[in-house]
């Protein structure tokens, strides 16, 4: 192996991100194990807006002194195409996955603009069948809904912001085990930025998709150009010797967070021996207004940017 080939290549391309409506939900419970169960359930099946009602993930763990009720909790981020769509998703997910979990409560985590607020507790309260009660504490209105272990507390309105979704990195790796290690390290680095989630399971995507399919009715299908097993049958974007490809997809509350997450992800990936090439997915600039140019974000201007990344 040529010595220079031992270093990963940082592709001269960009990840194409697009705006989505974002909300932050704080879930608390008597015990962290209950809070994390509710958090995982509420953010489950929320990997891609293409096939799910929202993209969601766990943003951070919250110590008791950081939550509204002084109990352990988690901050969750949800992203949707529009406020009505996100409101519907939140009502459904909180109603099915948080309300039902023992001892939990649910709070808004963003500033509330009354004109752009999502009415979440205001809809969930009807589960109380007339026995719900509201409490206004400070400027926030809460709903107390009687349930079998006491009552579920949920905030009436949830704030929204214009988030940025679709940040991504594609790691092309020379071996399966090393590739997975690299992807895990990359995911860990990326999700370390507050306000950023990686909505796919474990933060890693192995089934990258392309738009469309040969089959009618399918909006997306496997991204053949990145499938190592098809390397000799279709046009490929993989460098020789690629054994596995993993994609890291990230959504952020703002562009700056997403760029910082991308920067950390690139650095983590470039430090991994298994990585042959780091690239990103885009649609030629036609999908979203935010272009996260990998080399600009990493602060390098050459192919092998590991030393300065």
């Amino acid at each position: 192996m040529n010595p220079v080939d031992a270093f990963p290549v940082l592709d001269d391309t960009f990840a194409e991100a697009f705006p989505l409506t974002a909300a932050k939900v704080i879930v608390t419970a008597d015990h962290p194990r209950l809070a994390i169960s509710a958090a995982r359930a509420a953010t489950g099946n929320a990997s891609s807006i293409i096939g799910c009602d929202a993209e969601a993930g766990i943003d951070c763990e919250l110590e008791p002194h950081l939550t509204p009720d002084g109990r352990p909790g988690f901050g969750l981020l949800f992203f949707g195409f529009s406020r009505p769509a996100l409101e519907k998703a939140l009502v459904s997910r909180i109603g099915q996955s948080i309300l039902t979990c023992p001892t939990t409560a649910c709070y808004n985590g963003l500033p509330v603009d009354p004109d752009k607020a999502l009415k979440v507790g205001a809809q969930l309260r009807f589960f109380g069948d007339g026995w719900q009660a509201s409490k206004k504490i400070g400027n926030q209105r809460f709903w107390r809904i009687p349930v079998m272990d006491g009552e579920f507390l949920v905030e009436e309105s949830f704030g929204t912001t214009k988030g940025v979704a679709g940040g991504n990195l594609i790691l092309m790796c020379r071996d399966a085990a090393g590739g997975l290690d690299a992807a895990e390290a990359c995911a860990e680095a990326m999700r370390g930025v507050p306000g950023v989630i990686l909505p796919f399971p474990h933060g890693i995507v192995r089934a990258g998709s392309k738009v469309g399919s040969r089959y009618k009715g399918l909006k997306a299908s496997t991204n053949t150009e990145y499938c190592p097993t098809l390397g000799s049958q279709v046009s490929t974007k993989l460098p020789p010797g690629t054994a596995v490809v993993y994609e890291l997809v990230a959504d952020g509350l703002d562009l700056a967070s997403l760029e910082e997450s991308t920067r950390r992800g690139i650095k983590a990936a470039m430090d991994c021996r298994s990585v042959l090439k780091v690239s990103a997915g885009n649609y030629g600039g036609k999908l979203g207004p935010h272009h996260l140019h990998l080399r600009r974000i990493a602060g390098v201007d050459s192919v092998h940017g590991v030393a300065r990344c």
């Binding site: 009720d69 002084g70 409490k135 504490i137 107390r144 009552e151």
Partner: peptide, 13 residues
């Protein structure tokens, strides 16, 4: 006997 969550929020307030 209960431990209402809203009292915890009120307590912090």
């Amino acid at each position: 006997t209960v431990s209402p969550t809203f009292l915890k929020v009120l307590g912090r307030h």
